[in-house]
Nucleic acid binder design. Structure first.
Length: 494
RNA sequence: GCUCGCGUAGUGUAGCGGUCCAUCAUGAAGGCCUCUCGAGCCUUCGACUCGGGUUCAAAUCCCGGCGCGAGCACCA
């Protein structure tokens, strides 16, 4: 009997009805902040499919809410960079919804003239009653002339925000309440809350809602496949009803479920923005925040982040993943190129006694135990008794009675009054191997280590080095860390 | 309340009627290797939400229950 090994599908599943070279995908974030951890999924999945099918990826800024989720100017610049970092290429086309308001207006007018939509002057509460009761609101019977008059009143400011909306006619008896005559346009007070893009500012009073804007734009751009969260399933259903009015064909749509990262409970872009402005966080790349900027800063490899998302796949299950899953991917990417370096926390000065004939001016240590990525040199200053080093307090107390192995150098005997005699250059296997730095060969540095919403700042002595800013190193017996601009360290992961 | 969706080892996934006493990764435990508590290698552990039905045959199809999540915003 032979055991058959079943073929296991690798990577993402095939896209339905996808023809190589003709696939058009889009990634449509709200630029109310730079990209978050969760946006990574949209970037990775869409860009991966674009590559696989030799298709196009459109970046669309859905910036149509000027008051609740106002766009952040910085985001328009940072998001494209973040996409390029993660996807490995620039979007083939970038669109801003705020540039396309008049196009949406044309479609609104078309819809009103067709009798497929109407101006509704009911309040949100009033309409809710109709929605619950499955009955038509009085505005539903407006003639198209009356609707056009209403539309003009919205545009010219006769109406104020809250007075009127444009609704898409579906069916008030639709068994899914979410689909009943849904709103397509509302008014916004752009005098009080101008759109942050200067060229838009207070130019428009009437703004499309996502379901309308996105639906029209997807059609106009020839989007063939929409990949979105399953919380948008009803959005798809609303849009399909709109497409039927226009006689358009809706793109293939694929959904993913909700992802929660254990370590990051309860962060939203709006909340982060508020807290950054309040000074709670140092910026969008604060070590504690679940943003792509922070991931980059902490030394997460973009390929590892891609692998992480691709492994999660495209299921509609709601999942909760630990950050360690991403870290496992990252270790695979960075370990081979991460130079080893010693970082001594809670340093204890130890004087090491060495006979004069065994003193060398320096030793050379491999930067990586397996890979050939160079050597580092550790120099010593000698005095009458020997030389001074620092080791972690925890190590010196734990091993004071028996001595220890100074990794890559020598064994030392028991420590008494800050002094220990070197016993051998060759390692005695029974001794604990600890890391250390030479007195003149290290400089004070801090290691920033985020733990949930807490940032721990660990002081220590970092072995001297000449690695450039941004190098990801492995601190012996501590973990991976990235060298920051000021020479300090930010913790990557274990 | 109405509507929609999901439910495979601790976690995440593959499988989607027989080749499944169910894949792979991660995790945990043990071992090997190694001058790091890192990497690598090996072994082990561990799952089809429940109940009916259809069928010669169900993780896979159907119905119901249960659990979880989402939508019903003049947010995206």
């Amino acid at each position: 009997m032979e055991k058959r090994v079943k073929e296991r599908r690798e990577g993402l599943p095939e896209l339905p009805n996808a023809e190589k070279g003709k696939v058009i995908l889009r990634f449509a974030p709200n630029p109310n902040g730079p990209l978050s951890f969760g946006h990574g999924r949209g970037v990775v999945i869409n860009s991966q499919y674009a590559e696989t099918y030799d298709g196009k990826l459109i970046l669309r800024f859905d910036d149509t809410d000027t008051s609740r989720k106002p766009p952040l100017p910085l985001a328009y610049e940072q998001i494209p960079e973040e996409i390029e970092w993660l996807a490995g290429f620039k979007p083939h086309l970038t669109i801003m919804a705020s540039d396309r308001i008049e196009v949406y207006y044309e479609h609104a007018v078309k819809m009103l003239k067709m009798g497929a939509g109407y101006i509704c002057t009911c309040s949100a509460d009033e309409f809710k009653q109709f929605r619950v009761a499955k009955s038509n609101c009085p505005c539903r019977d407006n003639s198209s002339e009356k609707n056009m008059q209403g539309w003009e009143k919205m545009l010219d400011g006769t109406y104020s925000p809250g007075d009127a909306v444009v609704r898409v006619k579906t069916d008030m008896a639709n068994k899914n309440p979410a689909l009943r005559d849904w709103p397509a346009f509302r008014m916004q007070d752009t005098i009080t809350n101008p759109h942050p893009r200067k060229e838009i500012g207070s130019k428009y009073r009437v703004w499309p809602l996502l379901d309308f804007q996105s639906a029209v734009e997807d059609h106009l751009q020839g989007v063939t496949h929409i990949i979105r969260g399953k919380d948008l399933m009803d959005s798809t259903r609303k849009q399909v009803l709109l497409y039927e009015h226009f006689n358009w064909e809706y793109p293939e749509t694929i959904y993913w479920g909700r992802v929660k990262v254990h370590e990051f409970g309860g962060f939203s872009t709006s909340e982060m923005r508020k807290d950054i402005e309040a000074g709670i966080w140092s910026g969008w790349d604060d070590p504690c925040l679940p943003t792509m900027a922070t991931l980059r800063r902490r030394g997460i490899d973009p390929i590892a982040f891609r692998d992480f998302w691709i492994e999660l796949g495209l299921t509609q299950k709601d999942i909760a993943v630990p950050l360690s899953s991403l870290f496992a991917h990252n270790t695979k990417k960075i370990d081979a190129t991460a130079p080893r370096l010693s970082f001594v926390r809670n340093p204890d000065a130890i004087s090491v006694g060495i006979d004069a004939d065994e003193r060398m001016s320096s030793i050379s240590v491999k930067s990586h135990p397996k890979e050939d990525i160079g050597m580092r040199k550790i120099s010593f200053d000698w005095n009458e008794r020997g030389t001074d080093i620092y080791i972690e307090n925890e190590d010196s107390t734990a091993n004071a009675d028996i001595g220890m192995r100074l990794k890559d150098w020598c064994d030392i005997g028991p420590i008494a009054e800050g002094f220990s005699q070197m016993t051998s250059l060759e390692p005695a296997t029974e001794l604990a191997k600890i890391h250390w730095v030479a007195k003149g060969g290290a400089s004070p540095a801090t290691l920033m280590r985020p733990e949930g919403k807490q940032l721990h700042t660990i002081e220590g002595l970092l072995e001297n080095h000449d690695f450039p800013i941004g190098t990801i190193v492995q601190l012996e017996r501590v973990g991976y860390a990235r060298i920051e601009k000021d020479g300090n360290l930010i913790y990557t992961h274990d």
